[in-house]
Structures are given as C-alpha cells and as structure tokens.
C-alpha cells in the first residue's frame, strides 16, 4: 500500500507544488515584464516604485487584490459567478501538468500530452462564458458571446497546425515532439544539430499561423475583443472585484504562458540548445526552455503594444477564410511530402 500508492502519490504532490510555486512566481515577473515592455514602447517608465526597478509590483498588486472586499452583484447567479474564475485559473494551471520543461521534467509524461493541452485550452472558454452569463449584465454577456465564437473558431486552425507537427513527429507525447527536433533540415544538409533542425523552419507558415491563433485563443491584443475596453469596458470581468478578478488575471496570464510553452515545444525545439556545440550544451535544458519561453512572450508583448485591435468581422474572416484553408492545405501537403519522400 505504502510503496504502491502513498509514496509515489506524495512525490507527485511535491512535484506539483514545486511547479505551481515556480509558475506563479514566474507569472508575477512575466506580468511585470509585460507592463514594462508596453511602457517602453510608449516611452513611459512603467511600474518603478515597489522594490528595485519596481520588480515587486506584481506582489503588491496581489496583496491589494486579496485584502479587498469581493463584491457579488445581487442579480447574479452566485454559484456560477464564483465558480467561473476558479475554472479559468484551475484549467490554465492544469495544462502545465504535461509540459516537459527539460528532458524527463514533466509531472505527467502521458501518451496524448498534446491532446491534453489542446483539450484544456478548449475548455478555458467556459470560464469566460460562465462569468458572462452569471454576471447578469449586458457587457459581460456580450463579451462572453464574442469569446465563445472567437475561441471555438481559432481552435480549429490550432488543431490543424498541431496535426501538421504531429505528422512530422509521429507521436502525441510532448517529450517525443521535442526529441524529434534534434534532427531536421539542418542535419539533412550535413550541419551539426542546431536551431535549423527545429520545426519553425520546415513548417514556417504553420509557425506563423500558430502564433497568431495562440494570440486569438488567449484573447490577447489585437484579438482582445472579449474585453475591449473602448466598447465592452472589461468584457466578462466587469462585475468582478478582488480575489475573483485576480484569479481571472492569473488564469489569463498562465494560459498565455501555456500557449508560449506550446509554441516552444512544437516549433522551437523545447529544451534543446540552439547549437549543439561546447558552450551551449553545457547549459542545462531548463535554462533554454525558459529563455525561449521569455522570447516568445516578448513577441506576445510586442504584438500587444504595436498592433491595433481587429474588428470582429475581420477576426472571423481571418480565422475561417484565411487560416482554416491554409492550414488544411498544409496538412495535406505535409502528409503528401512525407509520404513521397519516405521520411515518415
């Protein structure tokens, strides 16, 4: 009993807690980085008061949110109103269970890892819909309707992008997806293992589509019509205050990090070093993973600052009339290429 269940159970529990703590602290600094990048592009200073260079700003915000009073509107559906932020943050955190940060460093290295993350990201829409409906107010409901249509639309193209990558890998396990990027275009040309082997080069159009779809899937600008402040105030989050609001923000940023991690694993070689030669492969894989994660997040942050918001019909047009046909064609083209060159 003890050796079969309790001891492994305890280890998994400890691993989960370690990952959660690391992730939450990382999220706090990512939030700070997002605000700093945004400020730098606008020639502002950004948060610079709490702690050195304002580094502790996120923790001050956390304290502020936690000690404020949560206000629940009297017309709201109380149970669902409070359940929505919990669902949104818990789901985002759950997705991280299968992400391998380095070789063998995943809490659950399951066979269908990529499907699990895809499922979790498609369930995240429930947090938004439930919040929008339970608030019993106009703007949250409009925000919820928008987000439901938007997230379902962009999941389709994300699904096809994932299928193309899986065609090249031949496995749904996250670790296998990264390891398959050890050899690729670069090694076929006779070069040493390098960043040219990763999928971003061979599947470049899919990389671009995935990046843009990830922005839309996580309601990041320029696709943040769900919470477009100029028309919907804050969308589904209007009626929320204090800790429930904090949970929404947390869920949103962790979902964004999850999408960044997925980009790194699918296209940027996960924990593999950019050049498999002396100084680079001494550095542990975790460092490379986090480095790439930060780079992708920097791209997310830059898009937020420099691209104006899409109109809703443009958003739908892009999803259904541009991305879907291209990704569908690429699935067929990739499958045909692999079949006829005998690489599969």
């Amino acid at each position: 009993m003890f050796e079969d269940y309790i001891f492994p159970g305890l280890i998994i529990l400890l691993q989960s807690v370690a990952l959660l703590v690391a992730l939450l602290v990382f999220t706090a600094f990512i939030l700070y980085a997002d605000r700093k990048v945004w400020a730098a592009v606008m020639s502002r200073r950004g948060p610079n008061v709490v702690g050195p260079f304002g580094l502790l700003q996120s923790f001050a915000d956390l304290l502020k949110f936690v000690i404020k009073e949560p206000i629940i509107p009297s017309g709201s559906n109380k149970g669902i109103f409070l359940l929505a932020p919990l669902i949104s943050s818990a789901l985002a955190l759950a997705g991280w269970a299968v992400i391998p940060v380095s070789e063998g460093w995943a809490i659950a290295s399951i066979n269908v890892g990529i499907l699990f993350v895809f499922a979790v990201s498609s369930l995240e829409v429930y947090g938004v819909i439930m919040a929008g409906w339970a608030s019993n107010s106009k703007y949250p409901f409009l925000g919820a309707l928008r987000s439901a249509a938007q997230m379902v639309s962009y999941e389709v193209s994300i699904g096809f992008v994932i299928v193309t990558v899986l065609l090249c890998v031949g496995s749904l396990n996250m670790t296998d997806i990264v390891l398959s990027q050890k050899d690729g275009l670069g090694t076929h040309l006779g070069l040493t293992n390098s960043l040219l082997d990763w999928h971003w080069l061979g599947l470049f159009p899919m990389f671009v589509i995935f990046f843009i779809s990830a922005l839309a899937e996580t309601n990041r600008p320029p696709f943040d019509l769900v919470e477009a402040e100029s028309e919907l105030v804050a969308g589904h989050m209007i009626e929320y205050s204090s800790t429930p609001y904090l949970l929404f923000m947390l869920g949103e940023y962790i979902a964004i990090l999850l999408m960044c991690a997925l980009t790194v694993i699918l296209f940027l070689g996960g924990w593999l070093p950019p050049l498999d030669i002396a100084p680079f492969n001494w550095i542990p894989g975790v460092f490379w993973f986090i480095f790439k994660l930060c780079m992708v997040f920097f791209m997310f942050a830059m898009v937020k600052t420099i691209v104006p918001r899409y109109r809703y019909d443009q958003l739908m047009r892009l999803g259904w009339k541009v991305f879907l046909p291209i990704s569908l064609f690429m699935v067929i083209a990739t499958a045909a290429f692999l079949k006829f060159t005998g690489l599969a």
Partner: peptide, 18 residues
C-alpha cells in the same frame, strides 16, 4: 477520452450553452 473533451465539451457543449 481526450477527443470527448475536445469535441463534445470544447465545441458541441459550448454551442449548447450558447
């Protein structure tokens, strides 16, 4: 199990709820 999550819960049930 995963397909049930993605297709039924992630898409069909969303439209139900909608």
């Amino acid at each position: 199990g995963m397909i049930l999550l993605v297709v039924y819960i992630g898409a069909v049930a969303v439209l139900f709820l909608f």
